[in-house]
Amino acid sequence: MAIITLNGKDIDLQNSTTLHQVVDQFCRGNKHVIAELNGTIIKTNIWRETAVKDGDQLELISIVGGG
C-alpha cells in the first residue's frame, strides 16, 4: 500500500502508480491541474511516465478567482 501526502493529507494511492493516474483519480475532468511533486512542477506531457511512490509529497493546484 502506497501512501502519499496530497495537498497536505495522507492519501492511499490504491492502484495508481503514475502521476497521470493520481490526477485522474482525484481531479477527473479538470483540464487545468498543476502538479508539483516533491517541490518540482511536472509538466502535463510527462505525467504518464512520472512514477508516484510511497512517501511522495504531491500538490495539485489550480488557477482560481482572485484579486
Binding site: F26, N30, H32, I61, S62, I63, V64, G67
Partner: peptide
Amino acid sequence: VTVALRRIDLERHEENIL
C-alpha cells in the same frame, strides 16, 4: 485580469475559471 493559485479541493469538483 488577476487570478490566484490554490490547492485543488479534492472533495468537490469546481468549474475552472480559465
